[in-house]
């Protein structure tokens, strides 16, 4: 069973249910949704600790760059993710295990698309393992 964590900014306004429904991940995936006060709360340290407890993949849903409550979170998140990916690489983990998305507000369609991308990433990880 794959373990997936999704950190999402609560200022996006989506409920956990919205996200679960839109992603529609296969039932064998265990998914943790964690609401954040702002994507600036998500740091490399937090992400690494999350891998440490046994997560396979982590995704971050952040606000559009110009709409961040703190003004900085969603601007910085991409770079923080890049940085974390490099660390993952050094640890011998695949970069595909981590991704951040800027999500438009009030668009379940966009959430669905992200869900598809997540599924893709999961397949990729799987193919690395078994392929």
């Amino acid at each position: 069973m794959k373990k997936v964590t999704v950190y999402f900014c609560k200022n996006l306004g989506y409920s956990q249910r919205d996200i679960l429904d839109a992603f529609n991940l296969p039932s064998e995936v265990s998914i943790n949704l964690v609401g954040m006060s702002c994507s600036c709360e998500i740091t490399a340290g937090l992400l690494l600790k999350t891998y440490e407890v046994g997560m396979d993949l982590i995704f971050v849903l952040a606000c559009p760059e110009e709409e961040c409550v703190s003004g900085e979170g969603s601007k910085r998140i991409k770079r923080r993710i890049e940085y974390t990916k490099e660390i993952l690489n050094e640890l011998g983990l695949e970069k595909v295990r981590l991704e951040a998305f800027h999500v438009p507000k009030n668009s379940l369609g966009a959430l669905k698309e992200i869900g598809d991308k997540i599924k893709q990433s999961m397949e990729e990880v799987e193919s690395i393992f078994y392929g």
């Binding site: 964590t5 950190y7 943790n32 964690v34 937090l46 407890v53 997560m55």
Partner: peptide, 9 residues
Amino acid sequence: GFDIKELRE
């Protein structure tokens, strides 16, 4: 610390 259940600080 890190709350391993809630996955947050």
